[in-house]
Computed example of a mutant assay.
Amino acid sequence: MASAIDDATLQAYRETHYRVLGDMPMTLRIDQPSAALAALHRALGVECSAFITAANPFSQRCDDAANARRQQALAQDVVQMGWRAIDALGAHPSNGWPAEPSFLVPGLSLADARMLGEKYQQNAVVWSGEDAVPRLVLLR
């Protein structure tokens, strides 16, 4: 499927370290099974999760204050939907792009992850199903 996202940006997404903070910290990598994520799913009684952000819409840098406002709005949406947002950061290991505030949302369906990603003008979200393999889901 063709994407409106340039190849360099897609490569950066694939190389990013998706760091989950909180009580069960872990680092997720695209297409790499995560025993820690599987354990979190089991502990919380969910079969899926999404790693999402509202920061830097369409990969255009915003200032910290704007990103903080966008993240707060996303957090409110997640809570209103009945889910829990675990603080997280998306950080490329070497390209100098600032780490993006993010959330891991255990239990969030792929459809709802897509909806939130589109609402907050993201190019992609990271979603994991029962196999606990984080997958890059393109939205454009």
Rank of each mutant, 00 (worst) to 15 (best):
V20Q: 02
A66V: 15
N67P: 06
T27I: 15
T9W: 01
Q60V: 15
L44V: 02
P57N: 13
A88F: 02
F58C: 11
Q32K: 11
Q60G: 11
Q11E: 13
A85R: 01
T53H: 08
K119T: 14
H92L: 04
G45A: 07
L104T: 04
H92D: 13
H17V: 07
F51R: 00
I86Y: 00
D112M: 08
Q71S: 09
A66M: 12
A113Y: 05
Q32V: 15
A50W: 03
A43Q: 14
L89P: 00
D77M: 05
A73K: 12
L37C: 05
P106I: 07
A99C: 01
L116A: 04
R42I: 03
N56D: 09
P57D: 14
L28R: 01
L89C: 08
L28S: 06
D31L: 03
V79L: 14
G90A: 14
R84H: 13
A99K: 05
T9E: 08
L28C: 02
A43F: 11
M24S: 14
Q32T: 15
L21M: 13
G82M: 06
N56A: 12
C48K: 07
D77T: 03
V20Y: 04
G107C: 01
A12C: 03
L28W: 09
M81H: 14
G117W: 03
V78C: 06
D7Q: 13
D64V: 14
R114I: 15
H92T: 01
A113R: 05
L44G: 05
D77H: 13
D64K: 08
A91C: 12
L40V: 11
D63S: 10
R70D: 09
L10S: 10
D77S: 08
H92K: 04
A43Y: 10
T16W: 12
L108W: 06
N95Q: 07
M115C: 10
G90E: 04
R29Y: 14
S49M: 08
R84A: 13
V46F: 13
R61T: 12
P57G: 13
H17L: 10
E47D: 15
A99I: 00
L110I: 08
G117D: 09
L37V: 10
I52E: 11
F58E: 11
E15N: 15
A55T: 14
F51V: 04
A50G: 14
P33K: 04
N56C: 12
Y13A: 03
R61M: 12
F51N: 00
S49H: 10
Q60P: 01
L104K: 01
M81K: 09
L21F: 10
Y18R: 01
R29M: 11
D77G: 00
E100T: 07
I52Y: 05
L74G: 07
P93T: 01
F51Q: 08
N95V: 02
P33I: 02
A50S: 15
I30C: 12
G82L: 05
A68S: 11
G22N: 09
I52P: 02
R29I: 03
A91R: 11
G82Y: 07
G90Q: 07
A36N: 10
S49C: 04
A36M: 06
L21D: 14
A91T: 03
F51P: 00
D87V: 04
Q76F: 09
G117H: 04
A8C: 01
S49A: 15
P25Q: 07
F58M: 14
